[in-house]
Design a protein around this nucleic acid. Structure first.
Length: 879
RNA sequence: GCGGGCGUGGCGAAACGGUAGACGCAGCGGACUCAAAAUCCGCCGUAGCAAUACGUGUCGGUUCGAGUCCGACCGCCCGCACCA
């Protein structure tokens, strides 16, 4: 029998067309079946799909197809995160319009995604740069503003000097802009903020309920939110040293137990008091100026030497009024955290200790480590930050430091300074409000008009959307909207006087913070969401399975969690606060790097690898010049270690690419792209095609289940159903690499069964078992390789499509064997196997084990002390 | 510095505390072929002819039994970082 080679070039487009014609992946909101929403993070339309996309979207597609087969009404949409700076850069460099550039990229990427055979509902496609999307975002901005969740304020902000725009704290990585890589500077600017800190506590607490999120991501968010419990402590200024009218300094501290060890106070150069004193002390003014000069970039601040300036001011110690502490202005004190002032306790804080040593300030140990003697405990150059017993601390002496904490808290709460408590408990967060203003053109305009008389005025609802002008110039650096000759000029909606439009646009992370909600009813023109469809009893949210890169662990995922709460508060969601019930962060696609003699990177497609024994050598495909094989790294254009999905799909087909990215590596780890691996995947495609055709011939047409099965056919059925169950378990766990292994196992077993047959005209029981195995094999494969699945399904003689077939049922009776072969250990080392009936009781098993020669030999004459039988697992003889 | 994760064949990896290395890649041997490709069969942790012994980064512990749990150390990766 000969079967024609499977040709994906013919087969794949044919089935994609068939799916489209039947509108198989079009999802209806009113479908009564249970809903399942699977979503992959939508792409930025850079113009080309890369292998990371292929891996991401394949995983989501496997889940979507599997859940569909299991009877769910599946929502699996796709859209475009289409605003952002690359469009402006392209416009500047190539004299194209950002809109044209973006939509052209969307068109070509859409074609590429379609060629992957993804089961997406394209009727719900959205692009965030489309006014039909961003008009709703503008409306929600105004709703949030009205609800008190938006604020315009002046603050020190992160300025990216290359992109010429401000950045949110989350977008500053190692002191550099997340996109440009430029050193970020600090500037004072008036900007728009979303008050994410309003939900700080809730965003933190709710992480506990996200049990289908990776712990790692939850931890990163916890750290980012950075909750700490402490006290605000008010220190009275010694009036003989203080400027007129300033009577106290308030500090935030989490270690009030160490208060008796305080030997100085430090305030930020940006602290109002520092400014006041600098007015009288030119030297201080110079010092503050110096701090600002060295400290405009984030990384400079981090590496800067700790510097302080003694202002001459003194504060009274709150628990020991006899003592006063010097007040320094210090460059390491951040105005944005706590109150911008702190007291230093050098013995128990490393940074304070460094500072104290530098400026010869006293170091008083107040927490004695367990097992140490107070008489000889000193702190030299290493601060002691752990628990212990209080010493040198007046009324606290002898207490454990946590008890001392509480005692100090009570004392400060009940003692007063100028009629108010000296201290109040305070929970402080590291999280700052989300700065959303961007001085860029290609983003969602902030719908606000500035009037000299009325201030910042919302654009009236009926005037939305505030659309971007299309005639912009990128000749000058800075914000093209601001340079536009007419766009910003308008009239105040309140008083009618000439006024100016806000020329800042929104951070593109705003766009991606609610797109998942928009997908539930993207055609709604009246409002951002449709309450009957978005969540609640008849709605889609939360997303049941969200899949994307771990690089969004904080930014996008935290912003989206904020947005869900803000949308609920403003009536755009019914009940949902957590938008993503299940989160999966997939690994990257990595590849070897290649360099020629000059050190320049070379594309893998220009390299030939020669293997001789264990040696691999690379040469340039055209020139034959030797190529150096470098480390395996994330695919990137700069290192040229990229493989173009288009080329892979063109030469091997989409299914091979899909199969490969699912194979081998666990999906949360990086997968190494290799030519050998792709060929292996491609070989399996052909092998499966041959195997299914062979099965179809041997099994013949469908027949009723025979009453009896012989040993061989029963064994095949058992393997089939066990494989099916394993695949089910592992698909639920998104363990695609294991699913691939189960598919291989079943295919291998079917081949073995066929080889073992003595005839090519098997009996009815074997024909039934073969047909069943073939059908189930195809259905197991179909979510991962959908085109091949259809072709095989047809070859098996089925009339419908496998994409709309119900998932097969496992037969529980076939999942357990009649007999069990248990490994037998003697003192923990395996010595034998014993085969017993599956329902054998422990006495029977013990008896057969006692009689085994190998067991007796291994015991070397010792008596059996006991026999441990783990049901269906193992027997251990202890002697 | 703080927090988290991970160390298993030549490689990617499997393994509810229960037979370590499933499955794949590479490699080796064979069949088919004039030959090659494709395909099929077999081998494939180390040592040993074998029985067997030893093997999951290192050292120790818990257990009838440890890759898995606990402690210490070594190495790699990731996140945060002057956060009071």
């Amino acid at each position: 029998m000969t079967t024609e080679r499977y040709n994906p070039k013919d087969v794949e487009p044919r089935w994609r067309q068939a799916w489209d014609q039947q509108e198989l992946y079009r999802t209806r909101n009113d479908d009564p079946r249970p809903k399942y929403y699977v979503l992959e993070m939508f792409p930025y339309p850079s113009g080309r799909v890369h292998m990371g996309h292929v891996r991401n979207y394949t995983m989501g597609d496997v889940v979507a197809r599997y859940k569909r087969a299991r009877g769910f009404n599946v929502l699996h949409p796709m859209g475009w995160d289409a605003f952002g700076l690359p469009a402006e850069n392209a416009a500047r460099d190539n004299k194209v319009n950002p809109r044209d550039w973006t939509y052209a990229n969307i068109a070509s990427m859409k074609g590429q995604l379609k060629s992957m055979g993804l089961s997406l509902d394209w009727s719900r496609e959205i692009a965030t740069c489309d006014a039909s999307y961003y008009r709703h975002q503008q409306a929600m901005f105004l709703d949030f503003w009205k609800a008190g969740l938006v604020e315009r304020k002046s603050a020190k902000v992160n300025w990216d000097p290359v992109d010429m725009t401000v950045l949110a704290n989350e977008q500053v990585i190692d002191g550099k802009g997340w996109r440009s890589g430029a050193e970020v500077e600090q500037r004072d600017l008036t900007q728009w903020f979303f008050k994410i800190t309003h939900y700080a506590e809730e965003l933190l607490q709710s992480l506990d309920g996200l049990d289908r999120w990776p712990d790692k991501v939850k931890l990163m968010q916890r750290n980012w939110i950075g909750r700490s419990e402490g006290m605000l402590v008010r220190f009275e200024l010694d009036q003989s040293t203080a400027p007129e009218g300033v009577t106290e300094i308030e500090c935030f501290s989490t270690r009030i137990d160490t208060l008796f060890g305080a030997t100085f106070m430090a305030i930020s150069p940006d602290h109002p008091l520092a400014g006041r004193v600098a007015g009288q002390q030119p030297a201080l003014a110079r010092f503050i100026e110096q701090c600002r000069l060295t400290g405009t970039s984030e990384s400079a601040i981090e590496t800067a030497e700790k510097l302080g300036y003694d202002t001459g001011l003194r504060v009274r110690h709150v628990l020991d009024p006899e003592r006063t502490l010097p007040v320094y202005v210090a460059n390491f004190v951040l105005m944005g955290y706590g109150t911008g002032a702190l007291y230093g306790c050098p013995a128990h804080d490393q940074r304070d200790l460094d500072f104290a040593r530098k400026y010869a300030l006293p170091v008083i140990p107040v927490v004695l480590p367990p097992g140490r003697d107070a008489a000889d405990f000193t702190v030299s150059d290493e601060a002691y930050g752990d628990d212990g017993t209080m010493i040198n601390s007046g009324f606290l002496d002898g207490l454990a430091n946590d008890a001392a904490w509480e005692a100090v808290a009570v004392r400060l709460e009940t003692s007063s300074l100028e009629g108010k408590p000296q201290g109040t408990r305070k929970v402080n967060f590291r999280l700052r409000d989300w700065l959303i203003s961007r001085q860029r053109y290609w983003g969602c305009p902030i719908p606000v008009i500035h009037c000299d008389d009325c201030g910042a005025v919302p654009v009236p609802r009926q005037s939305l959307p505030v659309e971007l002008p299309s005639d912009v110039s990128f000749d000058k650096p800075g914000n093209p909207l601001d340079h536009h000759p007419t766009w910003k000029h308008c009239h105040c909606p309140q008083c009618g006087k000439p006024a100016r439009r806000e020329t800042d646009t929104m951070d593109t992370f705003v766009d991606s913070s609610w797109y998942f909600a928009r997908f539930t009813d993207p055609a709604n023109e009246a409002s951002p969401t449709t309450l009957s469809a978005v969540d609640g009893a008849s709605g889609w949210l939360p997303v049941h399975q969200y899949i994307g890169g771990v690089e969004h662990a904080i930014l996008h995922l935290l912003y989206s969690r904020f947005f869900a709460r803000a949308m609920k508060a403003t009536g755009h969601l019914n009940t949902v606060e957590e938008p993503f019930e299940g989160l999966f962060t997939q690994g990257m696609v990595v590849h070897e790097t290649y360099r020629d003699a000059s050190g320049a990177f070379v594309l893998p497609s220009d390299v030939r690898i020669d293997v001789t024994g264990a040696n691999r050598r690379a040469v340039h495909l055209e020139t034959g010049a030797p190529i150096e094989i470098g480390p395996i790294e994330k695919m990137s254009k700069s290192k040229k270690n990229v493989v173009d999905p288009d080329e892979i799909i063109a030469s091997y087909g989409a299914d091979t690419a899909r199969w490969f990215v699912l194979s081998d590596s666990p999906p949360d780890r990086d997968v190494i792209w290799t030519e050998d691996g792709v060929q292996g995947a491609s070989r399996f495609v052909q092998r499966l095609w041959r195997l299914i055709n062979e099965i179809a011939v041997l099994a013949g047409p469908p027949l009723a289940m025979p009453a009896l099965f012989d040993e061989a056919s029963l064994a095949l059925r058992r393997v089939t159903h066990k494989s099916l169950q394993s695949v089910e378990t592992d698909l639920e766990r998104l363990a695609f690499n294991r699913c691939v292994a189960h598919v291989y196992t079943l295919a291998n077993q079917i081949s073995k069964s066929i080889d073992a047959m003595s005839t090519d005209q098997p009996e009815a029981d074997m024909r039934f078992a073969l047909r069943e195995a073939g059908q189930i094999l195809v259905q197991m494969v179909a979510p991962m390789m959908p085109h091949l699945g259809e072709e095989c399904w047809q070859a098996m003689g089925n009339s419908g499509m496998v994409a709309s077939a119900a998932w097969p049922q496992t037969d529980a009776a076939l999942l357990v064997d009649d007999t069990l072969t248990l490994p037998v250990q003697v003192n923990g080392k395996k010595r034998a196997d014993v085969t017993v009936p599956a329902d054998a009781d422990n006495a029977t098993i013990e008896a057969s084990v006692r009689g085994l020669d190998t067991v007796i030999r291994a015991l070397e004459g010792r008596a059996i002390r006991k026999i441990i039988i783990v049901p269906r697992r193992i027997v251990n003889v202890v002697g």
